[in-house]
Simulated scan of single mutants.
Amino acid sequence: MGIVEEFARRSREQDAATLMEGRNGRDDGKARIVVGNSVDPALVETKLSGITLYRGRILNLRVDGVRLPSGKRTNREVVEHAPAVGILAENDQGEILLVEQYRYPVGEVLLEVPAGIMEPDELPLETARRELQEEIGFDAEHFDEMCRFYTAPGFSDEVLILFHATGLFPSALAPDFDETIRVVPVSVRELPDLLCQGRIKDGKTLVALCRFLCRKMTCQTEAGTEC
């Protein structure tokens, strides 16, 4: 088992244990998604105060007063966001199933991997399966965690977990009423051109496609065959 796979396994076990603690009443019921980096005390900023300015359906906005490692004080604006998942869905025809949808904040139609926000009672894998069914009408026999990362750590605590889904089979759930989505199959051979031409502007999709291609290149180098 490689380093990435071993880390993914440990993270999944920790997520499950944390969620069970919440269900058993030993904490506030919110599962903390772990990314895995260590903390250097010499770089830590200490929270001194905090006030929530806005509470929304998927995010909150708060302003914290903090003490810097130098001893000086400043404010940090923080967007609290529920964790989310993204799914790189690969079918048996050698295609990646992406989705096109209009993103109101940027005013553009973007090409993305299927994705969605975790519900309070869900584990990442459960969210991945649900979102795949809602957005492209498929479930999958295999879900392998690719990586997890902070989407915008300068101002948000959102964590995104990426899965690689294979063994797709039809299994549709009703889509969300506020999402209009078009499924776009893209050949794996087209992915490098898609990236180099700048057609992918969504961060999670860039990470997913680059991680996928890097893994294929590593397999080809080590074994002389694709994986």
Results as ranks from 00 to 15, higher is better:
residue 1 M to Y: 12
residue 4 V to C: 05
residue 8 A to H: 14
residue 13 E to D: 04
residue 15 D to N: 06
residue 17 A to F: 08
residue 20 M to F: 01
residue 21 E to P: 00
residue 22 G to H: 06
residue 23 R to I: 15
residue 29 G to Y: 06
residue 30 K to S: 12
residue 32 R to T: 15
residue 32 R to S: 09
residue 33 I to W: 07
residue 37 N to G: 05
residue 40 D to A: 11
residue 42 A to M: 07
residue 44 V to S: 05
residue 49 S to K: 14
residue 53 L to Y: 14
residue 54 Y to E: 10
residue 56 G to M: 08
residue 59 L to R: 12
residue 59 L to Q: 08
residue 72 K to L: 09
residue 73 R to F: 04
residue 73 R to T: 11
residue 75 N to I: 11
residue 77 E to R: 08
residue 77 E to V: 13
residue 77 E to W: 11
residue 77 E to L: 11
residue 80 E to K: 10
residue 82 A to Q: 08
residue 83 P to D: 13
residue 83 P to C: 14
residue 85 V to K: 15
residue 85 V to R: 15
residue 88 L to K: 13
residue 88 L to Q: 11
residue 91 N to G: 07
residue 95 E to T: 10
residue 95 E to Q: 12
residue 97 L to A: 12
residue 99 V to L: 11
residue 100 E to V: 07
residue 100 E to H: 10
residue 103 R to E: 06
residue 109 V to Q: 03
residue 113 V to Y: 04
residue 115 A to K: 10
residue 117 I to P: 02
residue 118 M to E: 07
residue 120 P to L: 15
residue 121 D to R: 14
residue 125 L to H: 09
residue 131 E to P: 01
residue 134 E to Y: 05
residue 135 E to M: 06
residue 136 I to E: 01
residue 139 D to R: 02
residue 139 D to A: 15
residue 142 H to A: 05
residue 143 F to R: 08
residue 147 C to W: 00
residue 147 C to Y: 00
residue 154 G to C: 02
residue 157 D to L: 03
residue 158 E to M: 05
residue 159 V to G: 02
residue 161 I to T: 15
residue 167 G to H: 03
residue 169 F to M: 02
residue 169 F to E: 01
residue 169 F to L: 03
residue 170 P to F: 08
residue 172 A to N: 02
residue 172 A to H: 07
residue 176 D to R: 14
residue 179 E to F: 06
residue 180 T to D: 10
residue 182 R to P: 03
residue 183 V to R: 08
residue 183 V to H: 03
residue 183 V to S: 03
residue 185 P to C: 01
residue 193 D to Y: 14
residue 195 L to Y: 10
residue 201 K to E: 01
residue 202 D to M: 05
residue 203 G to D: 01
residue 203 G to M: 04
residue 204 K to H: 03
residue 206 L to A: 01
residue 211 R to L: 01
residue 212 F to T: 13
residue 213 L to N: 11
residue 218 T to P: 00
residue 220 Q to M: 08
residue 220 Q to W: 02
residue 221 T to I: 02
residue 225 T to A: 04
